[in-house]
């Protein structure tokens, strides 16, 4: 198994390129994905909206 610490610099590097607004706007998903009904019981479904803030 690789030493997990070797990965840390990679993540740091990647985070430099991440859009800076990511944390502030949340994770958005395409509407097609959001509009896939998720069953909670035999009868009840919901659509899991994005957690973006607006």
């Amino acid at each position: 198994m690789k030493n997990p610490h070797q990965w840390i610099p990679v993540f740091l590097l990647l985070s430099l390129f991440a859009p800076p607004m990511m944390a502030a706007t949340g994770v958005d998903r395409p509407i097609e994905e959001i509009l896939e009904p998720i069953a909670l019981t035999d009868r009840v479904y919901y659509f899991y909206g994005s957690t973006e803030s607006r």
Partner: peptide
């Protein structure tokens, strides 16, 4: 769509929530 909505399948049709 940044909020949750839902629906319920009953014996007489569908009830949408939101």
């Amino acid at each position: 769509m940044n909020n949750n909505t839902g629906f319920v399948v009953t014996d007489d049709g569908v009830v949408v929530v939101g």
